[in-house]
Amino acid sequence: MNIFRLCGDMSHLAAIIILLLKMWKTRSVAGISGKSQILFATVFTARYLDLFTSFISIYNTCMKVFFIGTVYFTIYLIYMKFKATYDSNHDSFRVEFLIVPVGGLAFLVNHEFAPLEIIWTFSIYLESVAILPQLFMISKTGEAETITSHYLFALGSYRALYLCNWIYRYYAEGFFDLIAVVAGVVQTILYCDFFYLYITKVMKGKKISLPA
């Protein structure tokens, strides 16, 4: 564990808590893409299959349980509890256009052609594009609530901090995972446009409204 990865995990944790607070306090899921949350649930389920078979640390296990638990709770809030406030008309991204190519790529490009490894690779690739339905929804509605912007900023920062973690681990431990790094770079790049809007607008107390 290093400071970059710890900050990354804390940023990820913060993002999930911000999202849950937004939903619980406003009792509304307006502006939130249920499809992205379903993709995140798929990512965590696929990645944490080893939750019961390989023990890394208490921290690792607790975080995995928390991430899986909260993402399914989020889906429950969107599609059941606060269903009336879910804006399905604007949440229209065709996720099959993500899942099929990502699934195929995981079969072709992986570290080891073994079931658990292919599923792990699938979760890494899927995570890099899982935010697209959410960004697509914001581009369709033309705006994002400030709290949703904070959620996206924390979520985007988490993987950017992981990139720093991988640089550190390469020099400190000789650890290098090309698949995770490439997917992490793609994932972070997808947030760049949003980061720009967040820093130039939200930081000045304005709301994000597209086109910028």
Partner: peptide, 10 residues
């Protein structure tokens, strides 16, 4: 450096 066989990151 090889990648860890076990994925130790979240």
């Amino acid at each position: 450096g090889a990648k860890l066989g076990l994925h130790d990151e979240l």
